[in-house]
Design a protein around this nucleic acid. Structure first.
Lengths: 157, 157
DNA sequence: GTCGCAATACTCGGATATGTCCTGTCCGAGTTATCAGGG
DNA sequence: CCCTGATAACTCGGACAGGACATATCCGAGTATTGCGAC
């Protein structure tokens, strides 16, 4: 997993705390978390394309949540940033004996090995899809939202 | 996930089918699956170090299963090949506002974001640990073992 | 005031370095079986 | 028949090259707000 996932999730939580009265520019988020601004922008754009965030261009523009926190699952964020492809890619190794001279056979689909690993992968995805940004907000300590709302605007971007 | 995982699992299944009367050299496995021999060796060595396989040096040496298939979980193979580190690494982004001028706070440990993702990661690991190579053998089609035993020795390494 | 115009502050998308890790190869050292030759 | 030594067949570990992908930066284009000046 790239670290972009961590960035994305923390940005979502922060945006939720700040509310969506007015959009937050990337420069501020980058300054807050001490991240490279240009690169963070790329990641946020990916979240916009997935509908997790919405962006408003122009002066006083920036990013805000694309929908309420209860409807943003961790799976949404991970999928948007890491890309849609699964972590286990079956290259059909099992068929290669044919290249090496063995006679062709009937193979069940999918490959048993691939199916087994994918079962685990589905558990991972299901667990991610079962948690929302709202859950993260609920689990955060009491003063966290206030602390953010108080000091975020003061950070020099 | 690197493709080494697929290699490792298929090799385990094949080794199980071939039985452990006599060890199987890497060159044969590589020829069977049409894989780069030197690189496959590296992966098998990792499995040996984890106890999944055992190796016998010298002429007529090679690899065989390190323990019965029922006691080799998919987690064992994945951990041996992919390494012990978790896929999500928390870099404690949440603390960085302090660097940017915000006052220090008390943070719960672990970070809520990290905990949420790790919960999903645990589901993935649990699912992998719940399946063994023996399960893969049981799920394979009827003739697969025979087919392998018949044609494997004929492949020119 | 208000209309128009320029400057500013943002996002968006693409092009481009840089770095890190996965993939793949090679070589030397150690270990064991096999085999040939001499007693 | 047995002992000995050489050869061959393997694993093991490290060093190293190449390429793919993640990381990071920069620039031009588009868009909205703000502010200024003229009427």
């Amino acid at each position: 997993m790239g670290e972009g996932v961590e960035w994305g999730l923390h940005c979502c939580v922060t945006l939720a705390w700040l509310g969506d009265d007015e959009p937050v520019p990337t420069a501020r988020l980058a300054a807050w978390f001490d991240l490279p601004p240009a690169y963070l922008t790329k990641r946020l754009q990916a979240l916009v394309k997935a509908g997790v965030l919405s962006s408003t261009p122009g002066a006083r523009g920036g990013f805000r949540l694309g929908r309420p926190p209860e409807r943003i699952t961790l799976m949404d964020v991970v999928a948007a940033i890491e890309g849609p492809d699964e972590m286990f890619r079956c290259t059909e190794i099992r068929r290669r004996p044919e290249r090496s001279g063995a006679p062709a056979r009937q193979f069940p689909q999918p490959c048993g090995v691939a199916a087994a690993v994918r079962k685990a992968e589905m558990a991972w995805r299901r667990e991610l899809a079962g948690q929302t940004v709202a859950d993260l907000l609920a689990a955060a300590p009491a003063g966290a939202a206030d602390h953010t709302r108080r000091h975020f605007p003061r950070v020099t971007g």
